[in-house]
Design a protein around this nucleic acid. Sequence first.
DNA 1: CATGAATGAGCGTTCATTCAT
DNA 2: CATGAATGAACGCTCATTCAT
Lengths: 194, 194, 194, 194
Amino acid sequence: MNKAERTRQFIIEKAAPIFNTKGYAGTSLSDMTESTGLTKGSIYGNFADKDEVALACFEYNHKMVREAISNEMAQFPSYRDKLLVYVEVYSNPRKYPLQHGGCPLLNTTIEADDTHPRLRALAGEAVVKWKERLVDLIEAGKAIKEFKKTTDPARTAITMIALLEGMIFVSRATGDPANGKAVIESIRNLIHEL
Amino acid sequence: MNKAERTRQFIIEKAAPIFNTKGYAGTSLSDMTESTGLTKGSIYGNFADKDEVALACFEYNHKMVREAISNEMAQFPSYRDKLLVYVEVYSNPRKYPLQHGGCPLLNTTIEADDTHPRLRALAGEAVVKWKERLVDLIEAGKAIKEFKKTTDPARTAITMIALLEGMIFVSRATGDPANGKAVIESIRNLIHEL
Amino acid sequence: MNKAERTRQFIIEKAAPIFNTKGYAGTSLSDMTESTGLTKGSIYGNFADKDEVALACFEYNHKMVREAISNEMAQFPSYRDKLLVYVEVYSNPRKYPLQHGGCPLLNTTIEADDTHPRLRALAGEAVVKWKERLVDLIEAGKAIKEFKKTTDPARTAITMIALLEGMIFVSRATGDPANGKAVIESIRNLIHEL
Amino acid sequence: MNKAERTRQFIIEKAAPIFNTKGYAGTSLSDMTESTGLTKGSIYGNFADKDEVALACFEYNHKMVREAISNEMAQFPSYRDKLLVYVEVYSNPRKYPLQHGGCPLLNTTIEADDTHPRLRALAGEAVVKWKERLVDLIEAGKAIKEFKKTTDPARTAITMIALLEGMIFVSRATGDPANGKAVIESIRNLIHEL
DNA sequence: CATGAATGAGCGTTCATTCAT
DNA sequence: CATGAATGAACGCTCATTCAT
């Protein structure tokens, strides 16, 4: 990694949590110079514009989540346990402090939906791929008879995603851990019934 | 309704969909003057500041959704049917064009979480009350034996909310109606199993 | 005094201390509506514009000072004592609470000098008349041999004015009562040497 | 002096006479962009806010006066002559064109007294130091027997300040040079009697 | 005569962006 | 490659003023 790449990476690491917390419109170039200690000129030397920083930060934030998940998953041979990793990671923001500001997929989709097509596209693809990964896991579980053969992989996958993001929503909205836990319970049930 | 109240209402009606679409940080006073045809001075004659407009718009947006739901619900005596109204309304943004920009609870919670405490508080209370209304419906259904006595009202209520908002998320993220429909199917199942 | 005149007077009484405190540029129409409880329309119904209010307020403030002085003076037959009344009044802002914000002649002259010709003219005339009144008192004192015949009325008068306003300046600038008192002492000496 | 310092100095030089003429409230950012030819952004790149420009301008204006005084003073060995320099400089605004808008101490004290604590503090300290300098001169004069041993340095110093500022006041208020000259005459007498 | 509602210009400030050095 | 200095447009907000009611 040469100098340019290192600076770029440095900016991303500092700016990513800000974007995830304040959103695209709420994050300013000054926020970035402040958190990096660099000048605006330097940021513009490494990125074409604010958009490009935002895009790179989204990918960084998303990658952090993905890696935490797949690291945990590698420890479990059972597909049911692999699926339960999502529950574990998403319900322990303390233990997996990767989502400063919450799930980047949710944040980005909600903010960018009507205003920022490129970010929106990126988040959309990420959800599609997430679903595909879940479908693969569920089909693999069916193949080895860990899961029932009546299980609908696509519907289960997308429902799990909806429940996980919905759980984040109810937790943040109400601020009451009991609400998050209740949804977690429902997701666990869903996974155990597969 | 006097002139001031009418203007206030007019501003809210014009600004509410903009706030719901672009978010608080993304909506400017100029957006409001443009959409209302009024001047900034006029908006400040009717609201203390941008915050107050945003708060009023959130309440307006939220009220629109609530009223659509309760109007539909009144038509059904069965509690199961009443619960299914949520599915109906939330899955037909065309037919119930009340959520220009999506569900205000979801949008507001996600954006305001880390940046705008008053909006955040408003959205939080709204979700808590929504849960209470669902719990009441489920308990009423249990009372008349429409629902099983093993049904857990609180967990069911908060899971339904998570699934409905999660459904909006996957629909908007992927842009694929099939994904939304799959989650809808899961919510219907949840309701039928009560 | 009819309704219109009473309202006009009411506005002046409420606005005068604000103008004297914050200055012309620093006083807004909103300051006036706030302190009077009236609407802007009402103020514009009684005055052509902000200028006219300011002019009337200056005259009111100045008249208050003049009247306090001449009321006190009436009690003393001696011209020396009459002159000492200025010292008394100007050095006791507590006892004669007429100068909320300080001497209106000083405030207005300093602010309006380069920016507000009509106010400036008013304040200028007021100082000229003040000087004339002092000259008259000193000449009357000379006529009855209370003062020395070598006393220069014009120079003494304008020097007294300069010392009185200069005393206000040093008091306000330094905030130290000792400084004001020292100048007071000098003015007393001046008067006793007449 | 690097670019930033030069620009900062340039802004101060252009803005200082405007602040001294129009006052703090009466001077706008647009006045500054107009007189400098710079943009608002550029001014904000060199100063935190309008306050900081005003503070710097006050110090600049005040320094100009101080330097003119001490340059003149250096030419005279006699302490009486040194004191007379104040009279000379303050009574010749043409010859010492340093007070565009009048004495910054007077202007600032009068305007800022009730509205702008930081400016007020700056002006207050400046007057205190001015008095101290005068006291030092008078004591030095006493030490070499140029002045009488009965002379009260503190009272004389503060009285001189009051008279000098009072002289500016009567000059500006009445617009009649004779009035200024009469006060000048009194100050000269005061100094000659030391 | 006073109000309530509005206007348009201007306020101080921050924005994303550029570019000579 | 990074900086320092600048730009012009836009920001949220307040101003003095007007006028139908």
